[in-house]
Design a protein around this nucleic acid. Sequence first.
DNA 1: CGCGTTTTCGACCGTGCGGTCTAGGATTCG
DNA 2: CGAATCCTAGACCGCACGGTCGAAAACGCG
Lengths: 195, 195
Amino acid sequence: MRSSFIEQARRHQFVRCALDSLHEVGFAGTSLAAVAERAQISKSVVVYHFGSKQALLEAVVESVYSSAVPDILAALEAAEGPRARLLAYVRIAVLFAAGNARALAAVGEIFRNLRRPDGTLRYTAAENEQLIAFVEDLLRAGQQSGDFGDFDTRTVALVIRAAIDALPERFTLDPAMTGPGVAATLCDAVDRMTR
Amino acid sequence: MRSSFIEQARRHQFVRCALDSLHEVGFAGTSLAAVAERAQISKSVVVYHFGSKQALLEAVVESVYSSAVPDILAALEAAEGPRARLLAYVRIAVLFAAGNARALAAVGEIFRNLRRPDGTLRYTAAENEQLIAFVEDLLRAGQQSGDFGDFDTRTVALVIRAAIDALPERFTLDPAMTGPGVAATLCDAVDRMTR
DNA sequence: CGCGTTTTCGACCGTGCGGTCTAGGATTCG
DNA sequence: CGAATCCTAGACCGCACGGTCGAAAACGCG
């Protein structure tokens, strides 16, 4: 057994506690001591299982992303044609944001703040760039097939991703917003933009 | 003389140094010592002129905002009719973001990270909410006058603001993006969304 | 049970933080 | 010129941080 039962359980526990802490007191407030206190355990145990604060936060990011990717890929494969694919992407992204607002907000904190020992950002803009490029590919495919109108694919892709990235905060702020509701209206807005 | 020449000059100098520091090493890296070092002066002088780190960063926010508001108001007053007003707003917002990308990114760092001594965020989401509401008012006015089509004003307002808020980072990342170019294509996207 | 490994604890270390304090230089102004 | 005020430097304080360490406890297994 490479990793014991306790090892797995502890890692999962600390990732959860770090998520809660990031959401409630932000990146600066999420110290090793704070995470340990939430888990009601000694600080050095966190270091024992993760080695460093950076490794802990990277595990948080990994945890959230690995829960998102399969759903998104499945939704994309189920759609036929450029327009349906784009709208399916927007829809599943909104629904995931609605169901995981806290986790995504926490990951955002990590992306914007976590730095390597030398001071450089751990997560650069390259990750976000990939997401924008993916949407832009969807848009170009639709333009070439004639499903979409003529517009600047880069700008529209940027607008779509910006809207999706803003959702986690909005969902936590306004409980009246529902996943399906926002998905429908946002799909409508995207539909209008791409005609 | 309420505030001496030196007082004004120092405050302006430290605000500039704080802006640079926020942009280069982020919120966590922007300590009083770091700001003082950029100004090549003793740390206690910064405290002497501002009283606290919080006051310094609030002065940074005030400085950036006071340079934006007059331009935006002027652009709005010059426009006639709902559609022209909305597009003028988007246009001037993009142009300001293009010309002040560093400053806006720095202010974003402050908004997301500056906390009061009790741990609560100094700048809440209420500020952003005001901006969204303002755009939504522009949209509703256009719908009532028949200039705009039928769509969910709240969602479209959110999309527009999210796109504008994402611009400072994009401008610093991609030097090929020009203010007028992005303004034109974003206005086009907004125009499509609101028909 | 008994022994080796894994896990936990709490004391401890160096560092950098925001901020205070004292004392001395520079300015201003009567 | 002289005194009051403004400004600056640098030592210093208490604190919280990320991380280390040695010893003790818990566990797994023959």
